[in-house]
Structure formats: C-alpha cells, structure tokens
Amino acid sequence: MNNSKDIRNSNNAPRPVGLYPHARKAGNLLFLSGVGPRKKDSKEIPGVTLDTDGNIINYDIEKQCHAVFENVRMILEDTGSDWSQLLDVTVFLTNMKADFAAFNKIYAEYFKDNQPCRTTVEVNALPTPIAIELKCIALIS
C-alpha cells in the first residue's frame, strides 16, 4: 500500500519538473526520480547555452555531469541515504557518440570507491534542454 510518508524530497536540489517526488522509500530501498543537472530555484543549466526560443546552442557535457552527480548526492543525503549506498544507476544521454567518453571518465572519478550497477542508454530528448539524466536506486535505513 502506498504511504505518503514514503515520499522523500530535498530542499537543496532542483524541484521536479512535474508531479513526482525526488525519491520514494520502499522497504530498505530508495528510488530516485530522474535527476538532471539544473540548478536549484533557477532555470540555469550548468554548461548549457540556449537561444531565445529555449533551444540548445551549445553544451558542455562535463559541466552537466558534475552538476547531475552533485544533485543526486544532495537528494540522497537529504532523503536519508548517501552516495556509498547507491546500488544501481541508469544513465540517459542524448548523444552517446559525442558524450560517452567524457561522461565515462567523470563517472569513474565519482564512483571509484562505490561501484553500483550501471546501464547507459541514448535517448532522443529529455524533458528539459539537458544532455544527461540519472535514475538511481540506493539503500536506506
């Protein structure tokens, strides 16, 4: 049975772009909703330059990787878990060919001590003008 006390949100991460929580607890697992690199209380996306219509002119995947990993870290810590408790990470990239090598290098820096399972897929687009989004599962007590 669903219970609203299982819904977890962070006051330090960007707000979700729809009606969903940052995370939800089920037993000893914490399921994070998709997390992107946006900044909290801002439309700013690190490493992204948009035209006046909101289309991407240019982006820096490295800046977006660092920002999305920090957003995940904040959500984990604010919802009762932490980075070392990550079990599974699904990565969505909008340009696998151009961005995978840089992403993989930065990912290795963040996950050298904790090595959760990982799946990386290319998607045509994400809900906001970003090049990366993470979906994570972690342990929680």
Rank of each mutant, 00 (worst) to 15 (best):
Met1Gly: 15
Met1Pro: 14
Asn2Asp: 12
Asn3Trp: 12
Lys5Asn: 13
Asp6Ser: 14
Asp6Arg: 12
Asp6Cys: 11
Arg8Ala: 14
Arg8Pro: 09
Arg8Val: 10
Ser10Asp: 09
Ser10Val: 08
Asn11Thr: 09
Asn12Ile: 08
Asn12Arg: 12
Ala13Asp: 06
Pro14Ser: 10
Pro14Lys: 14
Arg15Gly: 03
Pro16Arg: 12
Pro16Asn: 06
Val17Cys: 07
Leu19Met: 08
Pro21Val: 03
His22Thr: 00
Arg24Trp: 03
Leu30Asp: 05
Phe31Met: 02
Leu32Ile: 01
Leu32Ala: 00
Ser33Leu: 01
Ser33Asp: 04
Gly34Ala: 08
Gly36Lys: 07
Gly36Thr: 06
Arg38Ala: 08
Lys40Ile: 06
Ser42Pro: 07
Ser42Trp: 05
Ile45Glu: 08
Ile45Met: 04
Pro46Lys: 14
Gly47Asp: 12
Val48Tyr: 10
Val48Ser: 09
Leu50Tyr: 13
Leu50Asn: 13
Leu50Cys: 11
Thr52Ser: 15
Gly54Gln: 14
Asn55Gln: 12
Asn55Tyr: 07
Ile57Lys: 15
Tyr59Leu: 08
Tyr59Val: 06
Ile61Cys: 08
Glu62Arg: 13
Glu62Asn: 12
Lys63Trp: 07
Lys63Ala: 13
Gln64Tyr: 10
Cys65Gly: 11
Cys65Gln: 08
Val68His: 10
Val68Gln: 08
Val68Glu: 04
Val68Ile: 11
Val68Phe: 08
Phe69Val: 02
Phe69Asp: 02
Glu70Gln: 15
Glu70Ile: 11
Asn71Cys: 10
Val72Arg: 15
Val72Gly: 07
Met74Leu: 15
Met74Arg: 13
Met74Lys: 14
Ile75Tyr: 10
Ile75Pro: 00
Leu76Gln: 06
Glu77Phe: 08
Thr79Asp: 04
Thr79Val: 07
Gly80Met: 07
Gly80Cys: 04
Ser81Cys: 03
Ser81Trp: 11
Gln85Val: 00
Leu86Glu: 00
Leu87Ile: 02
Leu87Gln: 02
Leu87Lys: 04
Asp88Glu: 05
Asp88Ala: 00
Asp88Tyr: 01
Asp88Leu: 01
Val89Lys: 02
Val89Tyr: 00
Val91Arg: 00
Leu93Asp: 02
Thr94Ser: 03
Asn95Lys: 15
Met96Lys: 14
Lys97Thr: 14
Lys97Ile: 10
Ala98Ile: 15
Ala98Cys: 13
Phe100Tyr: 15
Phe100Cys: 08
Ala101Gly: 09
Ala101Glu: 15
Ala102Ser: 15
Ala102Trp: 14
Ala102Pro: 12
Phe103Met: 07
Asn104Thr: 03
Lys105Gly: 09
Tyr107Thr: 04
Tyr107Ala: 07
Glu109Trp: 09
Tyr110Ala: 04
Phe111Cys: 00
Phe111Ile: 01
Lys112Asp: 11
Lys112Gly: 04
Pro116Met: 05
Pro116Tyr: 02
Cys117Val: 05
Cys117Arg: 12
Arg118Asp: 00
Val121Gln: 09
Glu122Val: 06
Asn124Glu: 14
Ala125Ile: 06
Leu126Pro: 03
Leu126Phe: 06
Leu126Val: 05
Thr128Phe: 10
Ala131Asp: 14
Ala131Thr: 12
Ile132Asn: 03
Lys135Pro: 02
Cys136Glu: 01
Cys136Thr: 01
Ile137Leu: 07
Ile140Ala: 05
Ser141Tyr: 07
